[in-house]
Design a protein around this nucleic acid. Sequence first.
DNA 1: CATATTTTGCAACACTGTTGCAAAATGTAG
DNA 2: CTACATTTTGCAACAGTGTTGCAAAATATG
Lengths: 138, 138
Amino acid sequence: MEEQIIDVLKKSQLSVTDSRRKILELFLQSDSAMAHHDIEIKAGEKFDRVTVYRTLQAFLDKGIIHTIPTPDNSVKYALCKDNCEQGHHHDDHIHFICKICGITTCLDEVHVPEIKLPRGYKTQQTEVVVSGICKECS
Amino acid sequence: MEEQIIDVLKKSQLSVTDSRRKILELFLQSDSAMAHHDIEIKAGEKFDRVTVYRTLQAFLDKGIIHTIPTPDNSVKYALCKDNCEQGHHHDDHIHFICKICGITTCLDEVHVPEIKLPRGYKTQQTEVVVSGICKECS
DNA sequence: CATATTTTGCAACACTGTTGCAAAATGTAG
DNA sequence: CTACATTTTGCAACAGTGTTGCAAAATATG
Ligand SMILES: [Zn+2]
Ligand SMILES: [Zn+2]
Ligand SMILES: [Zn+2]
Ligand SMILES: [Zn+2]
């Protein structure tokens, strides 16, 4: 794990610091998306709020993580499993939010559909967020 | 217009006040979705911030408007054109955000597709937000 | 018009996210 | 390992967003 973490950071040309190691570890251990606040808590109050913001921004820039917009207006973050690099994300999956347990997950195996738009509109990106009841809660 | 506004408010069992009239008028005049801040500005500094929040919340509760989640985490609001009542929204359309002019619109004529989820997941609601270039900008 | 109810504005507050800057940590090369 | 240049961190301060309690004002009702 520790090896993998350092490997990812170096490949992204990020210097290896405590906060980056710890936060990347959280992502690797978690199977669901995390809000900024979750990360702050889980990091164990060891790091300043500002450092968490900057670390997440760095991870986003490097394509290590991606954001998930939620209906309640709280951005969540999850690891990019596809080969996203330097801000060019190739994620093509939908996201699921459970209304019972509140968990947000990447459904990597479910691809976003192609949406046919009216004449004149050009699609660049499609975000699909499905809410309902997850596997565990049903 | 004034008639229509009072009609909508009364049908929703909302008392007719200046702020509700003004804000509902803004929605009826606008053909794109508005952020809270837009509404605050357009209402002409006549109303307190808190009043705008409470008015929007009342409109949401009554099914007069609906929210649109955006990737940059700024909720926008738009009129419900379908017959949504008392929080039971029947909107079934997708939303479009132009990356050039920044406008967010309801594409009422484009319905959300059915997404087939893995075994165990139950869908309650599907949000689709497409980003790209709008009719005007292309 | 008089009264009960609802809504508004204000003050205060909590939370979220950003910036500038000095101190600390990291990477690099001898 | 050490010295040095570069990057990152923590802190303080700040702007923006959203919420609550409460008294004053507006509205609905008869
Ligand atoms: Zn669940
Ligand atoms: Zn994802
Ligand atoms: Zn446009
Ligand atoms: Zn809409």
